[in-house]
Design a protein around this nucleic acid. Structure first.
Lengths: 155, 155
DNA sequence: CTGCATCCGATCGGATACTG
DNA sequence: CAGTATCCGATCGGATGCAG
């Protein structure tokens, strides 16, 4: 899947930046592709968003936050996310309903999603804010950090 | 599309973080969804990646970087990206081949993609690096900034 | 040779119904 | 509540054609 030969990833020679990053690492495959094969699927980012930002951890709770996703698709996505190591299914005993929790890898998608939110807040303010005024990332995450169980810089 | 009632976006009451961000903005719709309806489509992120990181600006040049995308799909994606304001098609005169360039909005996807790359570099090091050692974002973008035509902080 | 448009089959997502 | 199973429609990829 990751066509290593052609997509050499970020190589300083190929960067469009005048100040290219000299000690830039060399990739065997494409780093964008390798994340996107799982995160790029429909609804996955939204699912991780409900878990990471909205503290949602149960199946039908996710469905109320993302009404358009059908049970079958949600179940499939959660399985894929579990296999890929982003979430884990926790069922204390078979009587209690299972809960879904982010793994460390899953928590590390928060900065990506934060950047997505920042992008929307800047470029789609007319539909997202009542005052229709674009917001910068430091206005959305004022402390430059969002933390709790985990601490992540989002600047 | 943006179900504003249920998906209230980031509201401090609903955040899972102990230190929730007090003056957090209130969203009318879902900020993740609003970006994803265009950026979430297959190949779009890769296309923006080739343009923003690899300095690719012509049609078939993109095809060599993303061999799996067919001409028809690539053309469709570029049109969608153009309509959404991420790229612009520049044809100086009808003799020269047109080039595709990122708009300001398109350049502002670089931090998102940089975060994706950081994520891959941390969690899929075994397939991305010869030494198989996970790398942190400051090792990938050492100067904390990537700039050129545009300057963006990615910490 | 580049930049598409068109058609067609395969895959994936959506709707609905159903079960423990 | 937490999913499965099935069926169907939308989307995507592949092949081909074609104009500048």
């Amino acid at each position: 899947m990751t066509s290593g030969r052609i997509m050499q990833g970020v190589d300083s020679r190929m960067l469009p930046f005048r100040k290219s990053l000299k000690p830039m690492v060399v990739y065997l495959g494409c780093p964008v592709r390798s994340s996107l094969d799982v995160l790029g699927k429909k609804w996955t980012m939204l699912i991780l968003y409900t878990m990471g930002f909205m503290n949602v951890n149960r199946f039908n709770q996710m469905r109320t936050y993302i009404p358009e996703v059908t049970p079958s698709v949600l179940a499939k996505r959660l399985k894929q996310l579990e296999r890929a190591g982003y979430v884990k299914r926790i069922s204390r005993n078979s009587r209690r309903r299972p809960i879904w929790a982010l793994t460390e890898k899953g928590k590390d998608t928060v900065p990506i999603i934060a950047r997505l939110i920042a992008h929307s807040s800047k470029w789609r303010a007319d539909e997202l804010f009542e005052d229709r005024v674009p917001k910068e990332i430091w206005q959305i995450f004022p402390k430059q950090t969002i933390g709790g169980d985990f601490e992540i810089r989002v600047t």
